[in-house]
Each structure stands twice: as structure tokens, then as C-alpha cells.
Design a binder for these strands. Structure first.
Lengths: 147, 147
DNA sequence: TCATATTAAAAGTCAAAGAAAGTCAAAAAA
DNA sequence: TTTTTTGACTTTCTTTGACTTTTAATATGA
């Protein structure tokens, strides 16, 4: 088996704990596999391309490192699933529960959570009982589509 | 983790009590972290630049110190100004113009722009002529407050 | 006492050394 | 021919330390 394949596999295993970003140190890894550091670059540029679902960042200098992020579409799938299961009405409470689920699964950030929350809150909508849950459902679903 | 990152984090935690200015003593801090004093300067000049929302002053001599101020950038001021100038109604068109202004001044990103847009669009609100501009104004202003 | 000189206590500057990662092309292997 | 391996050289960021500047505190002298 090729060195590059072994390194690729090793890196992919780092994701096995479910984390969606891992961090490596190029020189350390090269030493571990007894290869030149630039081979790590080769592996990354051939096997961790954006088209393959990865996004790479790095930092040079003391304490430098390479971060590889998995840009998985699980999140989108999950959001789509939620959207499809929201009817044409939703209460403020139901929205709150969904938002905190999203937050705890890291599907959205705190800023997005606040925007969703505020755009769908009763105080902001100030609509009649018949209208508000319908309008809220439309706003919520459409915002989720654009997150 | 890098020494510089640790020091950066420590300084940022000093703001956690909500104060918008903190004071440190360079030599004391250097001793606390077991580094040379000039490393504190390095951290300040790379992590507390005006572009990062901080403003730094200092005084030499006995009892000297470094003051770091969190400067709330004029982006927020601009947004507040806009919010205050929106009445209790706003049309979809007016919102569009404001959003593209915000975008061109880099006050918001494209993602935020999309969320603002979608949450305030006619198609999503689907309300009567009397209601929609009022509801839109409330949603828009409240979202801006949280951006 | 008051103004001035001296000393010491800070902080600032800058460049060298060190620690990573990046690039690119030649050599080797498939 | 295409892909992989290797290594020399480059770039970026961090750490360190010697030297400088500023200012407060203190001492000195009229």
C-alpha cells in the first residue's frame, strides 16, 4: 500500500470520534510516518479537496498546525428533514425547542439562533392568534432554508 | 497551544465582567506567564489591533501600565442610526436598498443579508397590505438589533 | 520649601533566532 | 503517461533578548 493512502486513512480515522474538524501538525505526522513533510501536503491536496467534502486551513510559525474540516451535508439533510415536518403553523414554543436542538447539534451558531428567534417571536410579529403561527411557520422555514 | 494564544485568551477574559477597558502591567503579566515582556507587546500588536476592535494606550515609568479598550466600532452606530430612522412601516423595496447598502459597507455578510431578506419578503409574510409593512418593520429592526 | 537633578521603574523597538507550514520541480514508481 | 515520493528553498508567524525611551519617585541644593 502506498504511503499516501496510509496517511489518508490515518487522517480519516481521526474523524471517527464524530468531530467535524481535526488538527494535525505536519512535521510531527511526517515523522510518525517516516516521510518528508511535503508528502503531507501532497496527501491533503489530492485527498482532502473541497470537492471531496473537506476544507483545509493552516497556520505557520511556532505552534503552527493544519486544520481539516469535514463539510458534511448531514446538517443540511437534518434541516431539510425538520423543514418538511413543520406544517403550516408553528408556535413560539415549538420554535424554541427546535432552535435549542439545532444549537446543541452545532447545526447553527448562536448568532443565527438569535436571528431565528427574534424574527419569529410573538412580540415582534404582534399578530392575531389566527395569523401568527402561520406567518411564523413561513418565516422559520424560509430562514432555515437559507442558513 | 501557543503562549501568545494563552496570553490573548487571558486578556480577553479580563473583559468578561462587562467592562469596556482593562488595565495590565506588562512586566507583571510577563512574569505570570513566564515569558519575556516584549511578548506581551507582540500579543497586543497582533491580537488587539484597532481592526480587531481594540484601542491601546500605555504609560511608562513607575506605576506604568497598558490600557486596552474595546472600541465599539461605528458599524454598530451605523446600524443603530438606521434602526432609529425606520418608522413603523417599511416596504420590501426599502429593505432591499438598505440591505445592499449594508453589504457594500461590509456591515453584514451575504448569509445575514439572505436571512434578512427572506424573513422580510412579501412572499414569506403573505399578509394584507395594511399589515405587511408594519410586521416587516418590526422584524427587520429586531433582526438588525441582533446582527 | 521649591525647583532641579538623579535614579529607578516601567513600557517600547527592533532584529535575530526558531518553529512551523508552503511551493515547486526533479526523480522514482506504477 | 500519470501519480507518488523526495528534498531544497521560501514564506509566515512566534519567541527571545539587547537596547532605548519615557515617566514617576526620590534625593539634592539654594
Amino acid at each position: 500500500m502506498r504511503m499516501s493512502d496510509i496517511i489518508e486513512e490515518f487522517i480519516k480515522e481521526l474523524f471517527d470520534d464524530g468531530s467535524d474538524a481535526i488538527e494535525i501538525q505536519r512535521n510531527e505526522l511526517a515523522e510518525q510516518f517516516n516521510c518528508v513533510p511535503s508528502q503531507i501536503n501532497y496527501v491533503i491536496s489530492t485527498r482532502f479537496k473541497p470537492s471531496q467534502g473537506y476544507y483545509v486551513e493552516s497556520r505557520r510559525g511556532g505552534g503552527g498546525h493544519i486544520t481539516i474540516k469535514k463539510v458534511n451535508n448531514d446538517k443540511e439533510d437534518y434541516i431539510m428533514h425538520i423543514i418538511n415536518n413543520i406544517g403550516n403553523e408553528i408556535t413560539s414554543n415549538e420554535v424554541d425547542i427546535l432552535i435549542s436542538d439545532f444549537l446543541s447539534y452545532n447545526i447553527i451558531g448562536t448568532k443565527e439562533a438569535k436571528l431565528l428567534k427574534v424574527a419569529t417571536s410573538d412580540n415582534v410579529l404582534k399578530l392575531s392568534k389566527e395569523l401568527k403561527d402561520k406567518v411564523r411557520a413561513r418565516i422559520f422555514k424560509n430562514m432555515l432554508l437559507n442558513i
